[in-house]
Design a protein around this nucleic acid. Structure first.
Lengths: 175, 175
DNA sequence: CCTACCGATCGGTAGG
DNA sequence: CCTACCGATCGGTAGG
């Protein structure tokens, strides 16, 4: 419901109605509306950050490492289509302290990508595009998967999706 | 304010306070809160759709046409950083009738890109990636510009930005 | 452009 | 898990 209506426009009464109880009864399960948002945001943030450890344990040339990073990222989004939409857009409603921690996790994750990209550029494996432009374009492309991909649709396999994003981002559309 | 707080979480009193008048006085200028959202969404939608006419008037090979389409898209986002953020995320709060028209305009715009991409694939100029995956990734990458680009920052020129997106999307990162 | 106000709804609590 | 309720705030209107 946070994905569909947005966090601010989803009331405790909406949530309660969906579960089939009264709004007041929700407070036997959670302590506040924001706690639900926290749970969602930090669940996804944790999955992304744990990918960083996987990547750091690999010794590969940059282009293979970037492909692996892309595939791992796609899997997180595809496995959490609704939660990742909330993660991407509703985190700004976290309170000050949680937002600070959230942003720190995101920065750690993004830094891992910047490192791979810059490393590849130094070695001459990659074009010398401005890393910020490339990385932000890449994140946006990957994060946008929740907008259109439906895992149960069946027509596109999620592993194939990861490979295709890797192909597009490394080699582009031109034949 | 709709960009920063979201439409639902921005009240008429917030808006009025920003302008320095009472909430009730806003209704001498607008007829409803949603009207402001309409104005923003359809302003941007109009700019995008008018790009389609420009593209249709060009006779170029697909890869040049796609580059032109990308550059035009980037200019709309860059010239309307705040409004395009609202356009991308808050349109779901439009009422039923406006949303229907809005979606129709978006579909018309997206169809122009699909046509170029499919045409290029048939001619063998482009890789045979699934058009939906490629186009959605492209839209997400381009639309995400509002998240990080600041036109007044000065360090990245908007024309250069359009060219760089074209390079990335057509040729990828690999050297 | 204002004051004064409408009914509806908000997140959350008290008490059982 | 409920009923009953709190003060705050919502979009919007009446009337000047």
């Amino acid at each position: 419901m946070f994905k569909e209506r947005g966090y601010a426009a989803t009331s405790m009464r909406h949530l309660a109605n969906e579960v089939g109880i009264e709004a007041a009864s929700l407070y036997n399960h959670i302590s506040s509306k924001e706690e639900i948002l926290q749970d969602i945001c930090f669940d996804i943030a944790g999955q992304f950050v744990s990918n960083v450890d996987v990547l750091n344990s690999l010794s590969m040339p940059p282009h293979q490492k970037l492909l692996k990073a892309i595939e791992l990222h796609v899997q997180v989004v595809v496995n959490n289509i609704d939660a990742s939409a909330v993660f991407f857009h509703e985190w700004r409603f976290l309170d000050k302290e949680n937002m600070r921690e959230f942003v720190k996790m995101r920065e750690k994750y993004e830094a891992a990508f910047y490192t791979i990209v810059k490393d590849g550029m130094q070695r001459g494996d990659f074009k010398k595009i401005q890393p910020k432009i490339y990385c932000q374009a890449m994140f946006s492309a990957l994060n946008g998967i929740y907008l259109w991909y439906r895992p149960d649709g069946g027509s596109i396999d999620s592993n194939e999706l990861g490979k295709t994003y890797g192909l597009m981002l490394l080699h582009g559309l031109k034949a």
